[in-house]
Structure formats: C-alpha cells, structure tokens
Design a binder for these strands. Structure first.
Length: 369
DNA sequence: AGGATTTGACCGTG
DNA sequence: CACGGTCAAATCCT
C-alpha cells in the first residue's frame, strides 16, 4: 500500500473522514430529534450518541484541534490579500458572516487569516447522467477540472456566474467521493456578493432597507406522509421570468434553526397536469432513515452556512408545504400507479400557524421505494 | 453568434 | 519539483 500511517496527507485524510463522520452523526441526531418519540427512535438516538462519542474520542486521540481543522480543508495560503486565488478584486475574500463561525477559534491572532471553506457531502445521482450534485440555488460556471492525486475522480472547479459583472467571487469545488460514487464533496469558498437574490419577483412585505432580505431563502417544513414519520424538507422553487413555477426540488436539511417561516400569496396551478410536483416526482429526495432512496431518487443538501446569505438565485423561490396528517389523505382513484399525486391542497393557514399551503398526498408510498 | 465547457498550459506554494 | 488552483484557447452547445 502506498498509504503510510505517518504520512501527513494520510493523517489529514483520516481526520477529514472522522470529522465528516462526526458531522454526519450530528446531522442524524438532528433528524432523529425532530421525529416523534418512539422506543425504536429512542434507541437510534442513543446509538447515534454513542457513535458520536466514538468519533469525538477518535479525533481526541489524534489530537485533533478544531482550530486547525481548516488547515486540512483550506487552501494553503489564501490570505485576505493573497494575489493568487482571486486575481480580480482585492476585497474579494473577506471572511465574514456565516463563514466566521467556521474559522473562529483562531486563538493565535498572529496567524495569517485563512479564507474559510465549507465542505459538504451531498448525494448525487450516478445513473442519471448527472456529473455532479444537483443545483444548490446558485448559478455556477465551470472553469476548470483537475485530476487530484490519490482521488479516483477529477475535481471540478466552479465560480459564480456573476463574477464578471458583479464581482462575485464565490467559488465551489465538486469532487465525487472515492468510496461512495453517488456522493460528492462540495467545497464552497467565498461568500456570494452578487445580487442573485435581490431582484426577484416577490418583493412583498419586507421593508428591510439595510440588509436586503433573502426573499428566496428556503423554508424548512415538516412533511407528513402516511405511515411515515414527518420529514423535514426545504422546498426549493425555480420560476421562470413570468414567475411561473418551472421546477421544484426538495432539499433535505439538517439546519439547526428549525423555525419555519410563513409565506403567503402563492398558488399552484389548479390544473393538475401542470403541477410541477407531479412532473418532478422522479427527482424527489430520499434521505435518512425513513427516507429510503432508490435508483430514481437522489438527495442533496444545501450548505447551511450559505442558506441565509443574501445571494440566492433570482430564479429561485421557496415555499412551504405541509402534507397533512395521514387520516386526511384522500385515497387516489388509481391505486396501481406508482407516481405520487396530490389529492388536494389547502391554501388556508394551517392551524400550526407556521405553514401556509397544505398538501395532501394520496399515495402512501410517496417517499418509499 | 455567444455563452458554457473542456483541457492543456501556467503559476504560486510548500 | 510536485501539486492544486486558475487561465484561456479551442471546442461544444443551443
């Protein structure tokens, strides 16, 4: 084997794997914690806790220091004034906002500032011909691809499409995982400074002068399906220039801040044949214990640190759905079809107060294989 | 035609 | 000098 345990790159890889395992376990805890209590669920929670402890202990044994963690993820030298990474604008790589959290603990103030990265593993599709994970709400333009030493798959480099005209220097890297070919490690670097979110249609009720409110912030919802636990989902809407829904994609989130926000004045076309939910049923997400994936589904996550930034794509809008409780499910006229259909939906405010539109699924296998 | 991607060259860093 | 990140000409795509 070419891997030597003392090799520093091997150690970095090990630490990264452990950190990822730890973070995934934390995400699992969040998922479990948001589901109704049951004995099996409780057991899963306990198990997740133990697994997390193992990861923490492993990192401890390796003398893992959180303040150094980003040495593993970070480019080696990108200081704020580095001429290298972003040749365009000198002010391009301020590390502030949500990224600050990730780069904090820099106890030694003399250390040069590193530009923070945020790496996230997302599920993609291996069979659908997609070369990478699904959209994350931003418009990216690929500018390079490179074979990486020790990696089976090349790494793709993307930059924000608004780089030229708006000086937005956000970039991301996408690398297919070596071991799990269906997942990708997506590394975001730089904060979106473009106005992808500020010129959108729904400029309704937020007279927020100072901070341009991210109108297109995805919303977290609880989704109830028959015979299944509620699932937390962000529904991401893509609209065309006429503000018609062009696409809808669910984003599973483990975002800690779970206060869903209400959203009003939205309606689906009553014509069910033009209902985008139906047209995209094959693309729906599978994730987590009660969210089995199959070959036609895939899962992805939006990077939590980017979610509340202002730079969401103008073409995107989001809205809440709550699939109502199982007992209100209307049985479908056709039982043989596997494709989910919407039996009805309700635009009244949900009694929970936080959700507007209530969708009622008629297919109990909506999220099942 | 013009925007996006591909791909080898180039360059800074360790 | 090897490696990873970026550039940019060529090519592809619509």
């Amino acid at each position: 084997m070419e891997n030597n345990a003392n090799d520093s790159s091997t150690q970095k890889g090990l630490v990264n794997e452990l950190v990822e395992g730890r973070d995934l376990t934390k995400e699992l805890q969040v998922v479990l914690g948001n589901e109704p209590q049951s004995s099996s669920n409780e057991a899963c929670g306990l198990m997740a806790k133990n697994i997390l402890a193992k990861f923490e202990r492993s990192l401890q044994i390796l003398q893992y220091d959180p303040s150094n963690h980003f040495q593993f993820h970070l480019a080696t030298t990108t200081t704020a004034d580095s001429p290298n990474s972003f040749s365009g604008s000198p002010k391009s790589m301020e590390s502030d906002g949500d990224f600050k959290d990730l780069a904090e603990h820099k106890d030694e103030s003399k250390k040069r500032r590193i530009s923070p990265r945020y790496t996230h593993r997302v599920q993609g599709s291996t069979s659908s011909g997609l070369e990478g994970p699904i959209e994350d709400g931003f418009n990216w333009r690929k500018y390079g691809q490179k074979d990486i030493l020790g990696a089976k798959f090349p790494r793709a480099y993307y930059r924000c499409t608004n780089r030229v005209f708006q000086g937005c220097f956000a970039t991301k890297q996408v690398q297919r995982s070596d071991d799990d070919h269906s997942s990708f490690d997506v590394t975001y670097r730089g904060k979106h400074t473009c106005s992808q979110a500020t010129s959108s249609s729904s400029s309704s009720s937020h007279p927020n002068n100072h901070h341009p409110t991210p109108k297109l912030e995805p919303f977290e919802t609880l989704v109830y399906t028959p015979q299944q636990q509620p699932q937390k989902i962000i529904w991401d809407f893509k609209r065309d220039n006429n503000n018609n829904i062009k696409d809808i994609k669910p984003i599973i989130t483990t975002h800690k801040n779970t206060n869903p926000k209400s959203c009003s004045s939205f309606s689906f076309p009553s014509n069910s044949s033009s209902n985008p939910l139906l047209n995209h049923s094959a693309n729906f997400v599978g994730y987590g214990n009660n969210f089995p994936t199959n070959s036609t589904t895939y899962a992805y996550q939006s990077p939590p640190t980017l979610m509340n930034n202002n730079g969401f794509n103008t073409d995107y809008n989001t809205h809440n759905f709550v699939v109502d409780h199982p007992q209100t499910i209307h049985p479908s006229s056709t039982s043989a079809t596997n494709s989910p259909t919407i039996a009805s939906f309700d635009h009244h405010h949900h009694h929970q107060g936080e959700f507007d539109d209530v969708f009622i699924l008629d297919n109990p296998h909506f999220f099942q294989e």
